[in-house]
């Protein structure tokens, strides 16, 4: 089968599946469900294939194969043996009897992953962001919040950022003092700060929702344009048009 035909079938399949998905606008129907199941199944199957052929085979089986065949391997590939053993122990988690044997491998994965994630979050996000925001409050610092504005504007902008950050955090401060027998109330300054933080949160969530809406609308636009473009492309690929 010619490549163009395959491409034409692919475009046609995409066209059909897109229509099946949009059929939900008329209500829940088998076509929509079928399209959803196909999308999930194809996506998972594709991921499995990618992992097998992109990770397991080249990075796990390849070194063993080279070792068995006597080919030269790199120094770093020898450690893949340890990773392979840990991977085997992870498979033992599938059975309740052998699950404890996989705890070491699971602990290794979780420990390494957590350490990497926490370290990266602290050193890569938290500290840089805090320092950048605090430095913005220093008049003599380099303006970065509003690079094109003056120092005062940047200080004010940084002040807004700091205020928004603190008040947003205070919004989630739920400690309160008991008032009377069965009522509690947060301190007044926390209540006021929380209200301001609540406003910042609403603005942030509104921005996120707007971005999500625009993103969704962009996808819709791309799909609608695809629906308009697909028939002609199919005909072009099939040399029918």
């Amino acid at each position: 089968m010619a490549e163009a035909t395959i491409q034409a079938l692919g475009v046609a399949l995409g066209f059909v599946l897109t229509l099946m998905i949009y059929s939900y606008l008329l209500g829940d129907n088998p076509l929509y469900r079928l399209a959803v199941h196909v999308m999930v199944g194809v996506g998972l199957g594709y991921a499995v294939v990618v992992i097998i052929y992109g990770v397991i085979v080249p990075q796990l089986i390849g070194p063993f194969e080279r070792i068995l065949t006597g080919e030269a391997i790199e120094a770093g590939e020898r450690i893949q043996v340890v990773a392979a053993v840990l991977a085997v122990f992870l498979l033992l988690k599938l059975s309740p009897r052998t699950a404890p044997l996989g705890n070491v491998a699971m602990g290794f994965v979780m420990g390494v992953g957590s350490a990497v994630a926490v370290g990266g979050a602290v050193l890569g996000t938290l500290l840089p962001q805090v320092s950048a925001t605090s430095l913005a409050l220093v008049p003599g610092s380099e303006p970065s919040v509003l690079p094109d504005q003056s120092g005062l504007a940047n200080v004010l902008a940084a002040l807004v950022v700091v205020t928004g950050t603190i008040t947003s955090l205070l919004y989630f401060h739920f400690a309160a003092r008991p008032v009377g027998r069965d009522r509690v109330q947060r301190p007044g300054w926390i209540v006021v700060s929380a209200q301001l933080g609540h406003a910042f949160l609403m603005i942030t969530f509104g921005s996120l929702f707007a971005g999500a809406l625009i993103a969704s609308l962009s996808v819709l636009t791309e799909r609608v344009q695809f629906l308009i473009w697909a028939p002609g492309e199919i005909l072009r690929l099939l040399n029918l048009g």
Binding site: P128, T133, G211
Partner: peptide, 19 residues
Amino acid sequence: VSAGLEPWVRPYYQSDAPQ
């Protein structure tokens, strides 16, 4: 990034030491 991700990502760009 996606338009919906911009509010999350902008602090990495618009800061004193942009990442």
